[in-house]
Amino acid sequence: MAGEQRMVYWAFGLSFIIHLAFFGVFLAAQKHKPNRISNTTVVNVSLVATPHKAGRSSTPVKKTVTTPKKKTSKKKETLKKTVKVASKPAKKAPVVSTSGKPKVSLKKKTFKASKVKKNALKDIEKKVEKTSSERITSALDSLKAKVEEQEDVKRLEKEESAAQPSAATGSEGAGQGGRVGELIDIYRVEIAYQIQKNWAFAEGLAGSAKDLEALLVFKVMPNGEISELFWDKRSGNEYLDKSAYRAIMKANPVAPHPTGIIRPYVLMALRFTPEGVK
């Protein structure tokens, strides 16, 4: 009994010390940042670097492009894609496109050719530059943060179960275990932006309702096909609900699963909230 009690005290004492250490590190960590990043895996670097820089600098595109370019060829494709998601809307506003599928390229043509008036174009660009890129990147930021959190937990578990540290070095090897969750999250963000780019929503048609929120859940099959789409929650505004549904259907099929993911499907959950509507 006494032994156990002592152990509890030990635990609390240690906890206290660790907290002290934590806050010490909290303050000191900023200087150590580059070191820490170099210690993490290749994928991790791209994750951290891309959205963070994009989110904080006013000219997000160029900086982000440079870091991932140095990465290994295997990762290049996924990296490029994530960068694209962040950069595209900032530059060519009305062009709807993603990867090189024929369907998508058709769309690209449509929107490019459409005689969008100069003003409208400027306007969209302005808006996109002002809001979209910021929001996208900040959204990316928060997502990445989440991913990191999860990753930590997973790594904890992994190391706890005494997995070999070599998993971090081989990029292919990351396909198993905790890295998959991270890959999936990147993939999800990519799909989300693919869908956002297909989302057409005229503010004026939503009426004066405020704080609308439409929740949709669906599965993405390995070939990129969307299936089992259902409403988790309707906004109550028919126009918003319809537009969200259409955005997903227009994006279908989305990009296929990247090589790292070996799953029967990836579950997606999207929350459509038109912030511009007030």
Partner: peptide
Amino acid sequence: NLGLAPNHAVGAEEYEYIDISNPFLRKIP
């Protein structure tokens, strides 16, 4: 302390939502 409840969203009842808040086109194509 860090406020991160481990969340393995895949296949769970609680979905991890990604926010889409900025329509790409503010018109009806």
